[in-house]
Amino acid sequence: MGLMQQTIFEQAVLFLAALVVFTSFLMLAQRRLFPLIGLFAWQGLLLAATTALVAYNRDYSHLYISALITLAIKTLVIPWMLRRWIIQLDVHREVESLLYPSYVMTAASSLVLFSYYVVLPIEQLSALASRNAIAVSLAVVLLGMLLMITRRQAVTHVIGFMSIENGLFFAVSIRWMWTN
């Protein structure tokens, strides 16, 4: 079953999944704090959009609430609070030095492949698309961990941790797309 046989909504969800991974990659590459928070907000926005899309497509009204909460907390409140912290702590000028960014990027792309490899044998996820989406969320979790490993600043650690949570949340919300 390829992409072409799926409905436009399913395609859109998979597309958003790819964009979520992309934001994770961008977070890994970003050395400044404010843009990092911006990326985190974008990831939250994508998450909310995905949830809302699933809710619309499958007609689950409770998912709308979830999407709204995500939008409020992850795209607005948390980034705003983080910003305030950074300004209060006066660390907003700090640029983290990345040793060998290309190695980190190579490791990150291998992690994406690895998560795909891990999810492949799971039989229960019979719908292929959902299995792939699970692979994507696992990849987001692993990339979040990688972000925490490679950075020293506390704020970055917080963002990495919340990006892990984003991955888990993403897995849960897109599961609704392919379950009856």
Binding site: M1, G2, Y116
Partner: peptide
Amino acid sequence: QEFLGFAYLLSLLGMLSHVILEVN
């Protein structure tokens, strides 16, 4: 190098998402 590295990363992600998300 960062600019073109980013271009490479985009293309690589394209390849990965093709393999992971698009084909059986």
